[in-house]
Every structure is written in C-alpha cells, then in structure tokens.
Nucleic acid binder design. Structure first.
Lengths: 186, 186
DNA sequence: CCATTTATGTAGTGATCGATGCAGAATAGC
DNA sequence: GCTATTCTGCATCGATCACTACATAAATGG
C-alpha cells in the first residue's frame, strides 16, 4: 500500500508490488483480481487505518472552530509523517489516475475525496442548526475552502514541505475562517 | 501539449502524441530527443503561453492585496477554462511524475513550481520594503499559504470544480490574508 | 535536370506492462 | 497414509511501452 501511496497508481507496477509484498503474481491476482481492485483495496485500507490521524480530534472537538482547526493541523502533521514514518502527502488526494479507462477506479477515488467534503459540511450544518454559526453562513463555500486548503497541503507535502510550513498554512486558513465568520455575522 | 496537460506525464504515451500531432515518431524524436525533453518543452510552452492569464493582473496591480487577490481569482478562472477552452487544472502543479528515474524532469517541474512561490514572496518583500506591509509580516508563511491555496485549486479543478467555487475559495483566502495582516500590524 | 541533403512513414527493437496456464507444493479431510 | 483440494512459483501470454534502423519522399543547390 505504501508503494501506491508514494508512487501513485500509474507509476506502480505489479512487479514492484510482488517484490515488496513477497508474494507471487498468482497469489496476488487470486486475492484481488486486478490492479484496479488491488488499488481500491489499498485505498480502503489507507482510509480505515489513517482516518483517525486526521479526523480524530475533529470529531471530538466541542466547537466547529476547534474541529476545523484540528482537521487542518492534524492533516498537516499526518501528511508530513510527523508522528509515524508515513509517506508524505495524501493517497486519496494525489493518487490521480489518467482519464483513460479506469473510470470505475477514478470514480471511487473521487467519491473518497467527496466524503471528506461531506463530513466537513455536515459539521458546519450542525453548527448552524445549533446556533453556533449564523444562519447566513455559507456552508458549502467554507467547506470547499477547507477542502481546497487541505488538498493544497497534500501537494506541498509531496514536494517536500515539512510540518511547520503546513501548520503555518493552517493558521492563516483559520484567520480566513474567522474573517468569514465575522462577515457572516455582521 | 494539451494531452500532457490533461493526462499527465505517465499516462500519456508516445503513440497518443503522434496521433494527435499528426506526425511520425521519427520526426518527433528528431525534434525533441526523448519523451522527457518533449514534456519539458511542453511545460515551457505552457508556462510561456498561459503565464499572463495568471500573473498578468498580479504584475499590474498597485497594491499587494490587489496583486494577491488577482493571482488567486485569475488562477481560479484559468484553471476552470473560463475564458478559453482550456483543460481544467494546472499542468505544473498536477503533472506529477512517479519518483522512479525522471529525477531530472521531476526537478525541473519542482523548480517551475518554486518560481511561482518566489514571485509571490518577492512581491511581498517589496511591499514590506515600501511600508505597505509591517516589518514583522511573515513573508514566507503567507507566501506558502497562497501557494497552497492555488495548488489546492488545481486539484479541485481537476475534480471538476467550476469557476464560481474556486472564486469563493479565493475570497475566503483573502479573508485569511486580511486577518493575518491585521494580526501582524496589531 | 540531376545530386545531395533533409525530413518522414513503416516496421520493428528489446523491455516491461497487466494478467494467466500449468505443474508441483502445501494443506485438509477422513 | 492417501486422496482431494487449495495455494503458490515459474514461465509465458499478447499488448504496449519508449525508441530506432532503414528506405523512401521532399526539398535544396547548382
């Protein structure tokens, strides 16, 4: 899975995988069926095992602001492999697949990314319902902003950015949050 | 070039290119030498021809704020092919190359991306020199933020985002700018 | 009009891609 | 211990990869 994470779908070959996994091609195909399905399974494994690094404090936060701030800061940490020795970047964001064929896999990846957006928007909607944010708050707009900043972090991490840099980005993004909240309230 | 733009380096084959360019492989290799060099040339062409779409108003702006705002908004427009019929996304940001071999090409792409950061930081530095921004202004930090937002826009554009969405992202990013400027001045 | 140079189209290079057929090894059931 | 079944290593499949040798076509120069 780490190979897919590091190199992406296209650049990772079956022989790369069998070598690292220590199994033959036969076993690999018996277990997964195809490279596409193997990648999808790796992506599921990735999501299941590292989800808490990014979403743990988001869920436990009491205020929306804390939740969003935790999401961005913890994304910064996870993408730079600060706590563990993880590859830089986000597999779901950066494992882009060329548009040829692979439409099923591309759709799966797209929906994986969409889930993150939905989680954020749901949290924002809850905050509006509970009166924590003003009714006129642009939920989708802010949700897209947060998603965009997090995606940008993934690219920066892949280019070698370290934790401190992305933390700084998260800080200024939160200034954007505060400014937008203020304008929505005023 | 558009093929490279749309599909990226790995997913674009030489036969794809000869087909759309209407030339044989011999002519192609006589002109460019290798796929790497062809891609590098395409990237140069891309940078030279579309640079003004993103940096034109940035350069002409009188204030830093206007410049940064123009950069983000025009990036949003260019990445969504609003004015012309351009592919979505940024070739320099998204044409990622697997880490194997291609180190020369990967370095060239990295430096292309770094140029954008340098241009932004230079503009910020000038603003500090001219007293438009406070001396304590975190130039690199804000520069990285702007770069990160723009990179994130590229991913969102590739995922199908339209202009309005990315314009909204740019707006909130500018709220972040204002908040950070205020905190640096205060 | 011919000779020489330049450009291009065709066919094919070895390498590697994702994916399989097959035969032997390991395991299970009794 | 013997059969039946599952699993795995090896060789290989056709397709395609980036790339090139070669022969022909176009263009140039006198």
């Amino acid at each position: 899975m780490r190979l897919f994470w590091i190199k992406g779908y296209e650049a990772t070959s079956i022989s790369d995988l069998t070598e690292v996994m220590g199994v033959g091609t036969t076993s690999l195909y018996a277990a997964f069926g195809s490279k596409d399905e193997l990648y999808a399974e790796a992506l599921r494994h990735y999501a299941a095992n590292y989800e808490h690094l990014v979403w743990g404090r988001f869920r436990e936060a009491t205020t929306v602001r804390e939740a969003v701030k935790a999401y961005l800061h913890d994304s910064a940490a996870a993408m730079t492999g600060s706590d563990c020795d993880l590859p830089h970047g986000c597999m779901a964001t950066l494992g882009t697949v060329g548009s040829d064929g692979h439409t099923k896999l591309a759709g799966f990846m797209r929906s994986t990314r969409a889930v993150a957006f939905d989680v954020i928007v749901s949290r924002l909607a809850r905050a509006v319902e509970e009166g924590e944010l003003p009714p006129a708050f642009g939920i989708a707009k802010v949700g897209r902003f947060i998603q965009t900043v997090q995606s940008g972090m993934a690219i920066r991490a892949r280019d070698g950015a370290e934790r401190a840099e992305l933390q700084g980005v998260a800080e200024i993004a939160m200034a954007g949050w505060d400014g937008f909240v203020a304008s929505a309230e005023g």
